[in-house]
Design a protein around this nucleic acid. Structure first.
Length: 554
RNA sequence: UGGGGCGUCGCCAAGCGGUUAAGGCAACGGGUUUUGAUCCCGUCAUCGGAGGUUCGAUCCCUCCCGCCCCAGCCA
């Protein structure tokens, strides 16, 4: 399917219509995270959408931090978010934008609204304000401070700004309609007092603008043409438009809402992710089990896979839950094409080849990719003592060839990229554990078909014992056992999968893996995709990104 | 409950009054294969319900049912 045939989503349809009608000449979008946590896969959808649209229409997309609440925000989050967006492969013109860059302008506009008799300083406390607001079915009641003079509000606002009023004692509110069916229009708060330093403006302000009073105006300042947000903000749109209609803004942006991404077997709210981190259920925001961008990166998911997945997602107004299998498909799809192959034995079992001399050594060449010759090859050492995986050997000679395509005593198997071997006998310790399998190679079978009469049951991977490097492997499973861990009033913490991380030490990797670089993706043949851990750099630790598909029924 | 939004295959979805109702994921069957991987082939829906408008409706109207969002000085 070409781009032209690809169905366009409703936002593309709106943009194209705006362009055609001349309502918009320059497409400008923005990705507006609040720096109060790390970005997750849901944000990636929004990032790909906003930056993608800008690219498609030759416009631009701003990275803009919505830093209007110093209580929850932190410079560390700004840094992490910036790094994640870049890693995903997106860039923006000039510096990132910040809501805090516009605090002076926002304050001036607040004064303007007061002067227009469209805003007032209210002295109702939080509880009173809630009572005056009414309910879903009952209209609200006007604040007793609603009709105070503009002069008084102006001077009170100044006092709020200067720190002369206690937190919670006053707010600046828009004067709209306490009887509106849309609760967002019942005199919403524009400014609240927070006597708190801001990570960027320091202690300059004692009051901070609310989301509603800031967001649309930020868009207007930046000339954003299409302000795309998620569904839950739809009820805020009339308020967004109210500011646009009542303030002397440099441009008139429009808000559009689309359905955010939800995935099963995980949680996707920053509040819940933060709880997992703060309560040490995971090792941090970048724990490989987290759906965060940094967690996925550390897990070994490529930026390309994330982008492909996001591009496969519908931009619509339905809020569904995407099956993680769909995400996993794109992870494997990318890794299958790009990951170099290597061999690593997770649960080593010694295989001694009796018809090779002790200390013998051969060197084989193995392709780094089965169908991409341009990816080159590497050398594989082969001696008379190898490691194979314990799961690839069985003493049970009654196992059918179809059911067990691995090594069985008395039968043959192909060692990937090397000889066909036969298992002859097992050596056990005093407790009956198999400590060694003794076998023999079939001569002249390297890179050659099996000779007449010999039918290997299958192909297994192996590592030369003399040159193997020991490593540790982290195997991951989904973080939650339940498909919808936070559905209804479930306590999602109760559904954490206790086996979401299995750490295996004493694994044996082929020697070429000894200097594996962080950020490189490997397929350990017959096992899965792996990448070197970015935190435990000093040791040889690999994280399993995802296993290979296995369609066979055990 | 007032307001806003949404209901097409197990999941995500295209469809914009006339289509054999796309596609992807999953699943299932088969072929290739020195990874039980990849790859290849094939199978898999009458559109939440009931009325109505129309020659003709998944698409328009009405009513009903279901789900989501809004009563933070969060975003």
């Amino acid at each position: 399917m070409t781009d032209l045939d690809k169905p366009t989503n409703f936002i593309q349809q709106i943009i194209s219509a705006d362009l055609d009608a001349g309502r918009v000449n320059n497409v400008i979008t923005r990705f507006p995270p609040e720096p109060n946590g790390y970005l997750h896969i849901g944000h990636a959808k929004s990032i790909c959408l906003n930056f993608g649209l800008a690219a498609q229409y030759n416009g631009k997309c701003n990275l803009r931090f919505d830093d209007t609440n110093p209580e929850k925000e932190d410079q560390a989050f700004v840094d992490a978010i910036t790094a994640d967006v870049k890693w995903l492969g997106f860039d923006w013109e000039g510096d990132a934008c910040y809501a805090s860059n516009y605090f002076d302008q926002l304050y001036t506009w607040a004064q303007y609204l007061i002067g227009e008799n469209k805003a007032y300083v209210c002295e109702l406390n939080a509880e009173e304000m809630r009572e005056y607001r009414g309910t879903l079915t009952e209209t609200g009641t006007n604040s007793p401070y609603r009709e105070r003079s503009a002069e008084e509000s102006l001077s009170l606002l100044e006092k709020m700004r200067d720190g002369k009023v206690d937190e919670g004692a006053m707010t600046l509110r828009a004067k709209i309609d306490m009887a509106s069916a849309n609760i967002n229009l019942r005199d919403p708060v524009l400014y609240r007092i927070k006597k708190m330093a801001h990570q960027r403006t320091g202690d300059k302000w004692n009051i901070y603008p609310s989301y509603d009073f800031a967001h649309g105006q930020e868009d207007a300042i930046e000339g954003v043409s299409h302000s795309i947000c998620t569904l839950e903000f739809a009820a805020n749109r009339p308020l967004y438009d109210w500011f646009t209609a009542n303030l002397p803004l440099p441009s008139v942006p429009k808000q559009y809402e689309f359905g955010r991404l939800n995935l099963n077997y995980t949680v996707m709210s920053k509040r819940k992710l933060k709880l997992l981190v703060d309560d040490n259920h995971v090792a941090g925001w970048d724990d490989p089990r987290m759906p965060t961008i940094s967690g996925l990166r550390r897990r070994g998911v490529s930026a390309q896979a994330i982008r492909n997945f996001c591009d496969s997602l519908a931009v619509a107004k339905t809020d569904g839950i995407v099956d993680v299998a769909q995400f996993e498909h794109f992870i494997r799809d990318d890794l299958n094409v790009n990951a170099h192959r290597a061999m690593c034995v997770l649960k080593p079992l010694l295989l001694r080849l009796s018809n090779l001399e002790e200390g013998s050594c051969e060197l084989f060449s193995a392709a780094n990719h089965p169908n991409r010759e341009e990816l080159g090859s590497r050398h594989l050492n082969f001696s008379n003592k190898l490691f194979i995986d314990r799961a690839d050997f069985s003493e049970d000679t009654t196992l059918s060839r179809k059911k067990f395509k691995r090594l069985v005593i008395g039968d043959y198997v192909r060692l990937r990229g090397a000889y066909i071997v036969r298992a002859d006998e097992v050596i056990k310790d005093s407790t009956g554990n198999i400590v060694e399998v003794v076998g023999s190679i079939v001569p002249n079978t390297v890179g050659a078909d099996a000779p007449e009469g010999i039918r290997p049951r299958g192909v297994i991977h192996w590592v030369d014992s003399a040159t193997a490097v020991e490593c540790t492997i982290n195997l991951y499973d989904r973080l939650f056992k339940e498909a919808a861990p936070d559905e209804g009033n479930k306590n999602f913490l109760e559904h954490i999968n206790p086996a979401s991380l299995i750490r295996i030490t004493g694994c044996k990797a082929e020697s070429s893996l000894s200097d594996a670089a962080v950020g490189h993706h490997y397929q350990f043949e017959r096992e899965g995709y792996f990448t070197r851990d970015s935190i435990e750099k000093d040791a040889l630790v690999f994280n399993c990104t995802i296993g290979l598909r296995d369609n066979w029924k055990a």
